[in-house]
Design a protein around this nucleic acid. Structure first.
Lengths: 147, 147
DNA sequence: CAGTTTGTTTAGAATTATTCTAATTCCTTC
DNA sequence: GAAGGAATTAGAATAATTCTAAACAAACTG
C-alpha cells in the first residue's frame, strides 16, 4: 500500500493541478480517511479530525470532503438514507453493509464482472458510474484476520 | 400485467394476512404507484394522491409507503442523497438514473448475473439484498417507443 | 348493539444530514 | 505590504423524513 507521505504528495499534486490549495484542513481530513479505512461518516471524520485540529469546523469538513471527492481522491458511499460514508479505496469495488454491526466492507469486483454489468444496459444507455452494494450479515466468525 | 383489481386484491390479502387493514389511504397510494410507474418520490405520490383524496396528509403517505414496503408490495429505490423513490416492479432488477432528464429506468438483470454477483461475496457473507444502480445518460434518441 | 380495544390518520413539531451565507482569515502575487 | 482570490468559520437555513399526541375508525366482546 502507498505510504502516507506518498498519498500526501498525491493530494498536493492533484489539488494544485486544479488550481486548489493543499491546506492543512484538507490534508488532515484526507489523512484521517486513509488512516482508518472503516468508511466513516462526515460526523465521525469531524470527531477524528478535531482531535488533531480542535478549531476545525464541521462545515470545513464537508467542504474538504467535497473537494476530495471532486478530485477523485476519495469515494462517496451511500446506503439507503443513512449518512454518506467516505472510502479511500479507489479501485472498482462493491460494498457490503453488515446490518448487525453496521460495518461496511469492500468487496472486490473483477473487471470482467463490471463489463458484464455494463452489458446489461440497452443500446444508447451510457453509464458513467455503477454502484453495487450488498446488505446482510457477515455472520460466520472466522479465526483469521478480518478486514 | 396484472389488472388493477387483481393487484388490489393482492394488497388486501397481503395486508390482512399480517393483521393490517386495507384502508382507502393505503389503497389509493398503492394504486397511484401502479398507475404511473415512473419511480415517484413521496412528495410526488402525495401530490397525485391528493387529487383523488384531498384530505390525505403527507405523514399518511409516508406511513402507507412504509407498510407497503414492509409487506413487499412496492420497492424503495435510493440514489445518492436524493429523495427516496418508489417502484412497483418486484422482479429482481437494477436501475438506471438518467442524470440529464432525472428519469429512472428499470434494467433487467438475468438470474444468472445475480448469482454471479452473489458469488463475489467472501465465505460467511450472506446478502439479503443486492442493489445495483447505474448513473449516466440515456443519450441516444430513438424513434420507437421509450420506456 | 354500547363499550372497549386496537389500528390508522392527521397536523404540526422535531430531527438530522447537509448546504448556504456572510464575515473573517489566509495565501499569493504584484 | 497591499490587493485579490481562495478557504475557513459559525451559525442560519433547508429539506426529507420521523415523531408525537390527539382524533377517528373499524373490529371485537360481552
Amino acid at each position: 500500500m502507498a505510504s502516507l507521505s506518498e498519498t500526501h504528495d498525491a493530494l498536493t499534486k492533484r489539488l494544485t493541478d486544479t488550481g486548489l490549495r493543499a491546506t492543512p484542513q484538507r490534508e488532515v481530513v484526507f489523512k484521517v480517511i486513509l488512516e482508518k479505512r472503516d468508511h466513516p461518516t462526515a460526523d465521525e471524520i469531524f470527531a477524528r479530525v478535531k482531535a488533531q485540529m480542535p478549531t476545525i469546523s464541521l462545515a470545513t469538513v464537508y467542504n474538504c470532503l467535497e473537494t476530495l471527492v471532486q478530485n477523485g481522491l476519495v469515494r462517496q458511499v451511500n446506503f439507503d438514507r443513512a449518512p454518506t460514508r467516505y472510502c479511500p479505496n479507489l479501485h472498482e469495488h462493491a460494498h457490503f453493509h453488515d446490518e448487525t454491526t453496521g460495518a461496511v466492507h469492500d468487496i472486490d469486483v473483477p473487471a470482467e464482472v463490471m463489463v458484464k454489468l455494463r452489458e446489461l444496459l440497452p443500446h444508447g444507455y451510457d453509464a458513467c458510474a455503477i454502484e453495487l452494494s450488498f446488505r446482510g450479515a457477515a455472520g460466520v466468525r472466522r479465526n483469521f484476520a478480518q478486514n
